[in-house]
Design a protein around this nucleic acid. Structure first.
Lengths: 154, 154
DNA sequence: GTGTCAAAATAAAATCATTATAAATTAATT
DNA sequence: AATTAATTTATAATGATTTTATTTTGACAC
């Protein structure tokens, strides 16, 4: 954890930004909730637990800054709020998401899976891919299993 | 065009909704601007040209209704506004998008391309896919060609 | 045709996430 | 220590979307 904070500190410095206490607290929250997909408000509430004096606008600015530096990814699942996700270190590609339409859970897929598709798109559409977003909406394994159990008992 | 309106009318009726003049005007705007990705506000302004008495809220409600009936897709490119896109008739899958980070253009890919990937995801993550969203961010063929010309002339 | 009821539309106000502004604080530099 | 630049805070503003209350419309029974 500390080493990751150190690394992020260096990333900030290399763009001549400082790792202020508020920014550090924000980054810590993101690290501690790495598997979640927190909204700005979520982050704000969590940061407030350790640094009650922080303002919502500061959290927004910090998240924006981290997004700019490609330390976090800003993602949008169409529920009206932006969510922020720490990037995997050294990951060349972005991970994908599985959004459950039953329970709302968001799971991640770290595998790329898109290499072939991207090759086709670049060749056929003459488009240089810099980034991609792939989200599947459906029924997650938990809800699926639950439904099967109910069915069996019926 | 008229046949498509007729078909949409039937779709509405089969869910016991009516194709009111306002709804028809909204659908017409969507049909006339099929290759664009209009925001609710865009649709509103265009509908207003032929039906000046329509309200923004009605447009929102109509778009929401059409989305519910899967006549249009609501998409979100992270620029803060939702955009609405007529579905291809009879398309079993959603089309994908190419967003140019230079000029902001949004092109569509009608081909599926994801069949193999979906098979892997369903099997490996035990997830039932109902819908997907795939967007590539990068440099479109127009900007790419422009850059090459500049390079050649330099 | 007229009355009645429900669906739909309108206009205005409310809500919610996000951003901008201005004043205050902190840190870095001279 | 003084000056300047960054950063933060609190508050107000914005902008997209939704809700609410009210009015209009259309279908159907009488």
């Amino acid at each position: 954890m500390e080493t990751r904070i150190e690394r992020i500190k260096k990333q900030l410095h290399s763009s001549s930004y400082k790792l202020t206490p508020q920014r550090e607290a924000t980054v810590r929250v993101l690290l501690e909730n790495e598997e979640d997909h927190l909204s700005a408000e979520d982050v704000y509430l969590l940061v407030k637990e350790t640094s009650p004096e922080i303002g919502l606008a500061t959290v927004y600015r910090t998240l924006e800054l981290l997004t700019e530096l490609k330390i976090v990814d800003k993602i949008n699942f169409g529920d009206g709020v932006s969510r922020y996700d720490l990037r995997q270190e050294g990951a060349a590609h972005f991970h994908h998401h599985l959004v459950c339409i039953e329970c709302g859970a968001v799971d991640e897929i770290q595998e790329d899976l898109l290499e072939d598709v991207e090759a086709v798109v670049e060749a056929r559409w003459n488009f240089i891919i810099k980034d991609h977003r792939l989200t599947f909406h459906g029924i997650c394994h938990r809800c699926k299993d639950k439904a099967e159990v109910v069915e069996k008992n019926a």
